[in-house]
Simulated scan of single mutants.
Amino acid sequence: MRYIDLRSDTVTVPTEEMREAMFRAEVGDDVYGDDPTVNRLEEYAARLVGKEAALFVPSGTFGNQLALFVHCKRGDEVLLGDDSHIVQHEVGAASVIAGVQLRTLTSCHGELDPREVEAKIRKEADIHYPDTGLICLENAHSNGKVISLENMEQIHKITRKYHIPIHLDGARLFNAATYLNVEAGEIVQYVDSVMFCLSKGLCAPVGSILAGSKTFIEKARKGRKLLGGGLRQSGFLAAAGLVALEKMIHRLKEDHENALLMGQELAKIPGIKVNIEDIHLNMVFFDMTGTEYDSDKLVKEMLKKGIKINPAEDGIMRFVTNYWVNREDVHYVVDTLKTIINM
């Protein structure tokens, strides 16, 4: 049975072209630096985002935490949004791996106030203070919003003033670029390092990229080994990543359009509230408490109809479109949901 899976864009499985590329991949030992497919992926990824070098890592969380580990010394303070993925969904890893303190700032739909960023930077060499070691931004944000380039530029100017690096959690970087109608490099120009996923929406089965300066990536490569991320013949995975970057980025607009359609159709159902203006990419957040239908029950009933969804989180539902969800699926999902809550 074919399922329509709206839980996340991480559920995408490889395309036939990816499977073929993986089957035929030329591989070596990447820890020695002689896996040609990994090398091609890293060189291509670096050029794609306008950075000097890049590193293939197992996951987005791995890439983010490796960036903190390399940028900071133990005891440093990292400034980032209170709703950022690094804070909310990475298992408190920053305290365990990098040994840093996360100081959260108020996030306005994912954007940080540049004035608050500057105010919270530790400017004095006081015996009581930690050093501000890093600023972390997120674009696209995991709340489905895209951060403006103006906001990123303002924060970049502040960090240059105090010589503090910026790391970008760009898990869905190319979704953000698609929404802004710019190349990814235009976003990444305002940060010192960036992580972006190959397995979110781009259909690669495993992996993310961490990119930055040559010096940063040299340190990150050693850090990756320390953290257990030396994957040896990882060219089999990198082959799918190459197809993802070469073929899948420019079709993300379809996922965005399908998400907007879904949001528009869901908004027509009595008791469901959707803020259409907040649909920037492939995520639809909506409040269905007005229907008085239990979201846990909805998960079970939708599964019976071949649709996989997650229950509400803090009262909010999230549907995520992806490569394997087409316009016909969108209409089927909305019609099915409507039928279930009206039973």
Score class of each variant (00 low, 15 high):
residue 274 V to D: 07
residue 48 L to M: 05
residue 305 K to R: 14
residue 306 G to F: 01
residue 322 N to M: 06
residue 276 I to T: 15
residue 271 G to K: 12
residue 143 N to C: 14
residue 201 G to R: 05
residue 233 Q to G: 08
residue 340 I to G: 01
residue 339 T to P: 05
residue 273 K to W: 08
residue 298 L to D: 01
residue 296 D to V: 13
residue 54 A to H: 07
residue 91 V to D: 14
residue 54 A to G: 13
residue 151 N to C: 09
residue 67 A to N: 11
residue 253 K to C: 00
residue 34 D to K: 08
residue 280 H to V: 08
residue 175 N to R: 10
residue 53 A to P: 04
residue 135 I to D: 00
residue 157 K to L: 04
residue 82 D to T: 04
residue 82 D to Q: 13
residue 140 A to Q: 12
residue 41 L to F: 10
residue 238 A to M: 10
residue 163 H to A: 11
residue 173 L to T: 09
residue 335 D to A: 14
residue 232 R to D: 11
residue 46 A to V: 02
residue 157 K to E: 03
residue 277 E to N: 13
residue 324 W to I: 09
residue 333 V to M: 01
residue 235 G to W: 14
residue 319 F to R: 08
residue 136 C to V: 15
residue 280 H to N: 07
residue 109 H to S: 15
residue 310 N to Y: 08
residue 318 R to D: 08
residue 222 K to E: 14
residue 333 V to Y: 04
residue 111 E to W: 03
residue 314 D to Q: 12
residue 157 K to T: 03
residue 141 H to V: 03
residue 261 L to W: 09
residue 240 A to M: 05
residue 39 N to W: 06
residue 299 V to F: 07
residue 105 L to S: 01
residue 84 S to M: 11
residue 63 G to I: 13
residue 70 V to N: 03
residue 147 I to M: 06
residue 132 T to R: 03
residue 78 V to R: 02
residue 39 N to Y: 01
residue 305 K to M: 04
residue 268 K to H: 00
residue 80 L to C: 10
residue 37 T to Y: 06
residue 178 T to F: 07
residue 228 G to A: 13
residue 211 A to Q: 10
residue 220 A to E: 08
residue 124 E to V: 14
residue 125 A to V: 10
residue 66 L to T: 09
residue 134 L to H: 13
residue 283 M to I: 06
residue 260 L to Y: 06
residue 267 A to F: 03
residue 252 L to S: 00
residue 297 K to M: 10
residue 181 N to S: 12
residue 232 R to S: 12
residue 175 N to V: 00
residue 85 H to D: 15
residue 10 T to E: 05
residue 340 I to P: 02
residue 36 P to S: 11
residue 37 T to I: 09
residue 37 T to A: 04
residue 165 P to V: 14
residue 180 L to S: 02
residue 67 A to G: 14
residue 166 I to K: 02
residue 62 F to W: 15
residue 235 G to K: 07
residue 25 A to M: 08
residue 327 R to Q: 15
residue 180 L to H: 00
residue 192 D to H: 11
residue 17 E to Y: 03
